[in-house]
Each structure stands twice: as C-alpha cells, then as structure tokens.
C-alpha cells in the first residue's frame, strides 16, 4: 500500500519539492539580505531607543531615519509573504481534492479497492501519507517564514499579529495546510468529481479562513485594556511594541468614548516635552487615550490556538472522509 502511494504520488511529491526549493532559493537570499541590513543599521538597538519611556530626541531622529531607509528598501518584500498565504490552499487543491476524486473519476477505485486490502486500509494509508507530507511542508515553511519575516515586522514596528504576518509564519500554517488537505479529501469523497471537489476546497478554505480571522481570532482570549494619559509630543503614544491593538479611542473623564479610532498627544507648543499639557478643549478635563489590545507576548499562544482549531477541523473532516468512503460507488 505504501509502495502504491509512493509510486502514484512520487511525481506530485517531486513537483512539491521543486516548488519548495524554488521558494527557498528566493526566500533564503532575501532573508539573509534583510537580516544583514537590519544588523548593519543597528535597528534592534534603535527599537529599544524608540520604545523607551523618555526617548533621547537626537538618537530617536537618527533611528527613525534608519528605520525609514530599511522600510523603503524592503517594504515590498512583504508582498512575497502573501504568496505564502495561498500555499496551504494550493496544497489542498492539488494534493487533497484529487486524492479520492481522481480515482473515482478515472474508475481506478474499482481496481484499487478490489485488491486484497479493503478500501478503509487504502484510505488510512493514503490520508496518512498526504497528511505527513503536508505537515512536513508546513513546518518547514512556517518556521522558515518566521525567520524570514522577523526583521520586516520589527523594522516596520508592526505587530506579528497583523493579518498577513500572523498567517504566514509560525505554527498556524501547519493547521491551515492540514485543514486544506482534509477539506479537499473530504470534498472528494462526498462529491467524487475533481472540479466540484476543488471548488468546494477553494470556497470552504477561503471562507472559513476569512471568517475565523475576522470574527474569532480577536476573541481567542479576553483582550486587555490600557489607558494612557494625554502627554508627550512624539508620535502616537504607544504601549508595548508588537501589541495587537483591536480598538482605540479617546475617552473623557467620565469614561465615555468621545472620539474612536484616534489617539491624542500634546501639540509641540502647548507644553514641555514629555510633560503634561493643558486639557484639550474638545475632550474636556481628564480625557485619556484608551486601547483594547492583545499583548504581544500572546503571539505563540494565539498561533497555538489558531493552529489547534484548524487541526481539530482537519481531524473531523478526515473522520468524515473515512466514514464516507464506504459509500463511494
């Protein structure tokens, strides 16, 4: 059985390997380049400077320039990252959906399932094989992307929680890839035609990913709130670097939101740098900045939750596929 699976899918496996090598040939040099530039410009130190409670204005100016230079040079790189958002889907479409659907479409299931091993064993070996391949591929590229994307997210002072960056790195891609494969297999079992199975995989994967990203992910854990007095003049008053800000606004002394999606700082002339400034008339005395956020250090926890949800869904789909395969004629 394992020999059959290997013999049948070795060409697919080879294509996958070639694809991964081609991606590595693109990602490794660009990754090294970014890391070298990041180190040259001393950006790690810069971020510490900028994030300090009382940044030294001169060093902050130099650092901001260095960060902008880095961003100008490498910002377009994050477009490459988008490629990795669709990678799990591609695996699901071309490994998952045809696994059973193609056999049925070509009638070869009548050959395979009437040899000595029953179709259940056939399915277990096949599903296991693609799942293992998928996990290996996903681990390699998920952790590889974590390595690749670190300087980008760092220099852009972005949160790793940002939609594209969260989704393309870490262990979440393992869940996505397994889920895409399982969805493809399950669709192929219950609708054993290639095109419909691929369409269901495409629609189901994109739909569920968007739904969970938008609706569920912000609430995996109860978010925390933070209030920051209106003071200082540099940029937006921030919290810790890398937090995932879900909501922000300015609340008045009574706690009522007076302006949402905004944060306030003193205007330069109003008071001494870093000091408290006179109340802004618009908001009244005692107004403050307010943020609802997920702390940056929850990144791996959220990755685990996201991945866990998709792995669990994959397990359910594979179970349904195993049950459904008995009824495939």
């Amino acid at each position: 059985m394992i020999w059959l699976t290997w013999r049948q899918h070795r060409r697919q496996a080879l294509f996958t390997l070639v694809g991964l090598v081609a991606l590595a040939a693109l990602m490794i040099p660009t990754g090294l380049m970014m890391r070298a530039s990041y180190a040259d410009k001393g950006l790690a130190e810069c971020l510490r400077v900028l994030n300090a409670a009382q940044p030294d204005p001169e060093r902050a100016r130099l650092c901001n320039r260095a960060l902008n230079q880095f961003a100008d040079r490498f910002d377009s790189m994050s477009l490459i990252g988008v490629l990795f958002l669709v990678l799990p889907l591609i695996v699901g479409l071309f490994w998952g959906a045809p696994l059973v659907a193609r056999e049925v479409e070509q009638g070869t299931h009548r050959f395979a399932w009437t040899q000595g091993v029953g179709r259940r064993q056939w399915a277990l070996v096949k599903f296991g094989f693609v799942a293992v391949v998928a996990v290996i591929v996903a681990v390699v590229y998920g952790l590889g992307m974590s390595w690749w994307a670190t300087p980008l997210t760092g220099a852009a002072q972005q949160s790793r929680f940002d939609v594209i960056f969260f989704d393309m790195q870490g262990i979440a891609p393992i869940g996505y890839t397994l889920f895409a494969i399982a969805l493809g297999v399950c669709a192929g079992v219950h609708w054993p035609r290639m095109m419909p199975a691929m369409a269901v995989t495409l629609g189901g994967f994109v739909g569920l990913r968007i739904l969970l990203t938008v609706v569920a992910r912000p609430h995996y854990l109860p978010p925390e709130t933070r209030t920051i007095p209106i003071q200082g003049t540099i940029g937006e008053p921030g919290g810790a670097l890398g937090d995932w800000i879900l909501e922000k606004g300015i609340r008045n002394a009574g706690g009522r939101m007076v302006l949402s999606d905004a944060q306030a700082a003193c205007s330069g002339a109003a008071g001494p740098a870093g000091g408290k400034c006179p109340p802004i008339v618009e908001f009244g005395e005692g107004a403050y900045n307010w943020q609802l956020y997920q702390p940056a250090d929850r990144f791996w926890l959220f990755q685990g939750i996201e991945s866990g949800i998709f792995v669990a869904l994959a397990a359910v789909l594979l179970y349904l596929a195993l049950r459904g395969i008995r009824r495939v004629a």
Binding site: Q8, Q106, G107, T108, R110, F111, T114, Q115, G116, V117, G118, R120, Q121, R326
Partner: peptide
Amino acid sequence: DNPATLPDIGFVAQDTPLYR
C-alpha cells in the same frame, strides 16, 4: 465492507480501469 472476501474474488471492471 468485508475485505476478508476480497482474496476470493478477481474483478475486472468495465473499461478495464488501471493506473495508466
């Protein structure tokens, strides 16, 4: 759903499907 019967049966389906 009974693989135990399979060794007793030789089957050639219509249009003789084989892995081409």
